[in-house]
Every structure is written in C-alpha cells, then in structure tokens.
Amino acid sequence: MSSDPEYHAPVNPIPPVVLALFLVIIVVEAAFSLGARGMLGGPEAVGWRNNAIQSYGFNTDVMDWMLANGVYPREHLIRFVSYGFVHGTFTHALFAGAMLLALGKFVGDVFNQFATLALFLISLAAGAVVYGLLAGGTPWLVGAFPGVYGLIGGFTYLMWLKLGQMGAQQYRAFTLIGFLLVIQLIFGLLFGSNGDWLADIGGFVAGFLASFVLSPGGFAKLREKMRHQ
C-alpha cells in the first residue's frame, strides 16, 4: 500500500534531524539512569551524571572567567551547546525530549534540516549567554529546554506570518509562549526558581529572530529588504 503514489501516511514522519537530536538526549539519559542503578558501567557509573554536568554543563562562573581573562578555550566554548544534551533527572530529559519532538516536527516540516538544527543550537547558545549574563551565582544550567524554546520561537514566527497573511491580529502568535511563561511563573512561586527561565526566554527570542533568516527564503527576503533600504 505504501508503494501507491497516491498513498499518504496518516501521520507525517518526524524530521530526521529532530529524531537524531531526540535520540542523543535519550541515549545519554539512558546511560546515566542505567549507570546510577548499577546496570551499566560498573561502580564508577554512579557518578556519570555529575561528571557530565561538571564537564559539559554551563555555569555562570565559566562565562565570568572567560570574559575576565579574555580567554575562550574550546572545552569551555562547547559548553554553550553541550549543556543541552545533559539533564538533571530522567523526568527532566523525558519532558524536554517530548517537547523537542512536538515542536521540532512542526518547525522541521517547514524549515530544512540544516535550518532546524541551526535554530536549535543557536537557541541553546543564546540561552546560555543570557543565563551567564543575568543569572549570577546560580546552579549549573543543563537541559534542552532553551533549545526547545528556540523551536517555540520558530513556531511563533510561522504563526506570526500565517496570521499576517490572513489579516488577523499577529500578537496571537505569542499565545503559546505567554502561556508557558505563566506556568513557569506559577511553578517558580510555588517551588522556587534557579534562574533557568532566563535561558528559556533567551532561547525563545533567539529562535524567533533567527527564523527571519533560517525560514525558507528568509535570507533572500532579508537581503532584498536591505538592498531597498
């Protein structure tokens, strides 16, 4: 049946780059979880998660040190994106992975593979920069959520365009991010916050702005607009 040229799958497949990002997150988390339970890697595997956070997580002290000394070693620069593939708990990774699949599918069905990956990584880096500049003295930043919020930025951009084409009020495109920020505020008031919401906002803003260039034809449109100016 699938060989029929008129056949269309009832559910569109997940874009390969989104699936690859999801699998990296899940494989890393599986190694941490199995190691912590003594099912993989021997006794030293119990500390895999903490070691990974120390080696690949992002911390404001790391950024402060680089800015103060004017030195930017590769092992620290990689932290601006590598932190997105290390999570604090299994639940943390599960929620991030689920949102990555949902938002990544929507954006990846419109953006090409490279643009989708670039959007995710740019948002991770921007989230780390915002966190490093504004969240002084806070714990390690880990997890894919700033990158996921960047995909929400891409989703918002697409909705913003669509509403504009329909002649509708474009501010409605920001309904999703507004709802998520309210939820974060409530959770922060109830359970406390470590400042990682700053990274999420940074990721969202970067994702929305980057979409002007990364969306199909976006760079050509931007170049044409600059020429006319």
Rank of each mutant, 00 (worst) to 15 (best):
L176D: 07
I78L: 09
I186A: 01
F114M: 04
I14A: 10
R37Y: 12
S123Y: 09
T156S: 13
S123L: 10
G217E: 08
L103Y: 11
L34N: 11
I201P: 01
F187C: 08
Y157M: 07
T175P: 08
Y56H: 07
A98E: 09
F179G: 06
P15G: 09
I14Q: 08
V17L: 11
L124S: 05
G202F: 05
G132S: 00
P13A: 07
Y157P: 07
N194K: 07
V27G: 03
F212D: 02
P139F: 09
T156K: 07
G147S: 02
F120L: 13
M66S: 12
L119E: 10
I186T: 01
V130I: 15
L40N: 03
L23K: 15
L119H: 14
P10E: 08
V24T: 11
L161S: 06
G203N: 01
E29K: 15
L34F: 13
L34D: 11
W160F: 15
A168S: 12
A93V: 07
G207K: 06
F80K: 01
G207R: 12
L163F: 14
S211T: 11
D4E: 14
F111D: 08
V205D: 08
A144S: 05
G47T: 03
E29W: 11
L101E: 04
A30K: 04
G195F: 02
I122T: 06
F187A: 08
D109C: 01
P139D: 04
L198G: 09
D61S: 15
A173D: 10
F22W: 14
P5R: 15
A30I: 06
L185K: 12
I177K: 01
F80D: 06
L180I: 13
H92N: 10
Q169T: 10
A30Y: 14
R227N: 12
G57V: 04
L67G: 08
M226R: 11
P73G: 03
G154F: 10
P10C: 04
V46D: 10
H87K: 00
G127I: 00
W140R: 03
A102S: 04
I152A: 09
G195T: 01
G164I: 05
G154P: 11
N194H: 01
I78S: 06
F204I: 10
R79D: 12
A9R: 08
R74L: 07
S55D: 09
V182E: 09
G217M: 11
K105F: 05
A135I: 10
L77N: 00
L67H: 14
M66C: 05
R79K: 15
A135N: 12
N51R: 13
L161M: 11
F90C: 05
L161I: 13
G153K: 01
G217D: 09
W140K: 03
H8I: 13
N50V: 03
S33C: 03
G195K: 02
F204H: 11
Q165R: 14
Q229N: 15
V148W: 12
R74W: 13
Q170S: 08
V205K: 12
G108C: 07
A31K: 11
F219I: 13
F85N: 02
K105H: 10
L222G: 00
A135S: 13
P13T: 11
I201Q: 10
N12R: 14
H76S: 12
A68D: 14
L189H: 03
G88H: 04
Q229G: 15
